[in-house]
């Protein structure tokens, strides 16, 4: 065992302090969000946001969970996230791996082909026409999944990870008679776990947060994804506030400020638990395991 020098220990200590401070700095606003979502609307109006809930109330959450639609929305979003991420990872990795092979002749052509779409878009009208008129994907859950299956950004990231996989592995397997798909599937993928975890996480987050396509294409309430439904509840709370005020019902103040914060909590909850779970794949040395001996 090589002993750590004191300068090393100092560095480590500094790192611990910096990271802890930064973490606290990140958490405080978040805790404030949660607490304020549990505070009464009038206490927020009066005293602002606080780290501890004031005049504890579940009014904002009641508003959000007032009927079944929110549970259905959770279902829709979970389906979209799981299915979407799975298919997207398959397609993206299949696209990225060949592009990481140096010998592939047309790889730069394909690289350019994909990259170009990152910058140039046809605009909202063209997309709308394509999806709703020509592909008939209106009011279908798949409109949240299919168009998003290939994210150029994620693809390039994945390609970058594949680049760092030692090509000697693939070559030795080829000599043993394996074809490309076998190499990809049985050799490269298993040692790319941190990469898969990372890109998978990004895709999962993108699918989880989808709302724009829902806004444009989905009118069936039962197919609303979580983010979109929550956004509508939020907007309509503001809206209902104005309307109810016109007919001046006593004591009916729609909790708009606290609701906005509650919607944040409701929508990010599950995805936060995904990252810690994935962290077990971020273990050093996984990617180079097979080269030894």
């Amino acid at each position: 065992m090589i002993k750590e020098s004191s300068s090393d220990r100092l560095l480590k200590a500094i790192i611990y302090i910096v990271l802890s401070l930064f973490a606290i700095y990140c958490v405080i606003p978040f805790v404030t969000v949660i607490s304020s979502s549990l505070s009464s609307e009038s206490s927020i109006l009066r005293d602002g946001y606080s780290i501890v809930p004031r005049e504890f109330t579940l009014a904002a959450y009641n508003l959000i969970f007032k009927d079944d639609t929110i549970y259905r929305a959770y279902g829709v979003t979970i389906f979209v996230t799981v299915v979407g991420t799975a298919i997207a990872m398959l397609v993206t990795c299949a696209l990225a791996y060949p592009l990481s092979i140096r010998a592939l002749k047309y790889k730069n052509g394909i690289n350019f082909y994909v990259y170009f779409t990152m910058l140039f878009h046809g605009g909202l009208v063209a997309n709308y026409l394509l999806i709703s008129k020509y592909l008939g994907m209106r009011d279908s859950i798949w409109v949240l999944i299919i168009p998003a299956l290939v994210s150029p950004w994620n693809m390039f990231l994945m390609r970058n990870f594949f680049n760092s996989v030692d090509e000697s592995l693939a070559e030795s397997a080829k000599i043993d008679g394996a074809n490309d798909i076998y190499i990809f599937y049985k050799i490269v993928l298993p040692i790319s776990l941190p990469a898969l975890a990372t890109v998978g996480l990004f895709y999962a987050m993108a699918f989880w947060n989808k709302w724009f396509e829902a806004m444009l294409y989905i009118s069936d309430e039962n197919k609303f994804p979580l983010q979109y439904l929550v956004m509508r509840i939020m907007n309509n709370a503001d809206f209902a506030n104005q309307l109810s005020a016109k007919i001046s019902l006593p004591n009916y103040v729609v909790p708009t400020l606290s609701t906005r914060l509650a919607t944040t909590v409701v929508t990010i909850g599950p995805i936060i638990f995904l990252y810690p779970f994935l962290q077990k794949y971020f273990v050093k040395g996984l990617m180079v395991g097979a080269v030894k001996g």
């Binding site: 060949p98 082909y113 490309d180």
Partner: peptide, 26 residues
């Protein structure tokens, strides 16, 4: 590299349909 190109096919197709087809909108 036939098989490798085959792997890229689904991706290329999706990009074509959803990114290149609407590009006329520019």
């Amino acid at each position: 590299h036939g098989l490798l190109y085959l792997l890229t096919l689904p991706g290329i197709l999706l990009v074509f349909v959803f990114s290149y087809l609407p590009m006329g909108g520019i």
